[in-house]
Amino acid sequence: MYCAKKDRRIAVLILLPMLLVLFIFVYGFIAWSLRISFTDWNSILPNMTSVGFENYQRLFSSQRFQTDIRNTIFFTLFFLVICIVGGFFLSYLLYSKLRGESFLRTIYLFPLSLSFVVTGVLWRWIFSPEVGINSLFRMMGFEATFGWFTSTYSIGGFNVALIALIIAASWQYLGYTMAMFLAGLRGIPDQLIESAQIDGAGELAITWYIILPLIKPITFSAMIVLGHISLKIFDLAYVMTGKGPAFVTDFPGLFMFETTFRGNHYAEGAAISIIMLILVAVVIVPYLISTLRGDSE
């Protein structure tokens, strides 16, 4: 848009203080955390003596953090697969012009409006080994002894206790991918599908050869957004399970909170938070660059 030089200067002047505050609170604070992560501040009183990478070294050699990283990877993997596949499936059902579509959509999406705290309280009871879903199975006459989120059983590094958390998180976020896919499906020109049908293509063929390739970019966006949510996960695990026996349901976000605000290990907590930031940045930065570049062209 055309804009007088003077106007542009005013705009920048208005923008500047707001950006300054934001950048201090984001980048200034990140730098500050980074600085703390290299110190020996591991008690109530700040101690800014530099110890190099000691906090990081200690973290990577600690069993708790190793478990956390493993849990994050498995959780992200299952969470993504369930949300992408399930979300596409649901959106496809809605796309097929079912009656009561708006009712169905409302139901699929409502968990998104809830807090992770509410979800956590709710699902903690549902999966509570003695009283929850197990007792429902027992009422139906099955023997049910699975410990859910208290189980310490592990298959190839995957702590099965995570299943309860994965189900709860997917319950909440399936609607999100559903909404994204539905928007994408609605954007596909009807003629494209109609002409394929005239050519005699069946529903499966149309889905496979026409729809799926067209919604690929959406799948990618959904993966990025959900992926970064699961890398940061804290609220749900904190409320629903805590770190669990032998850390079966522990995550870096939880470890950071506990070691910082319970154990007063500030430097260690800062180091964890920096690692989390790097993980998220690896996912988000390339995505941001590519979308914003595409935007301006």
């Binding site: 609170f25 990140i30 955390s33 938070s273 930031l277 940045a281 660059i289």
Partner: peptide
């Protein structure tokens, strides 16, 4: 603007102690 947007993706743990 990209730098502004990045602020919504950061894990807030990374700014918590300074905050």
């Amino acid at each position: 603007f990209a730098l502004v947007i990045f602020g919504m993706f950061i894990p807030y743990q990374s700014i918590l102690i300074p905050l």
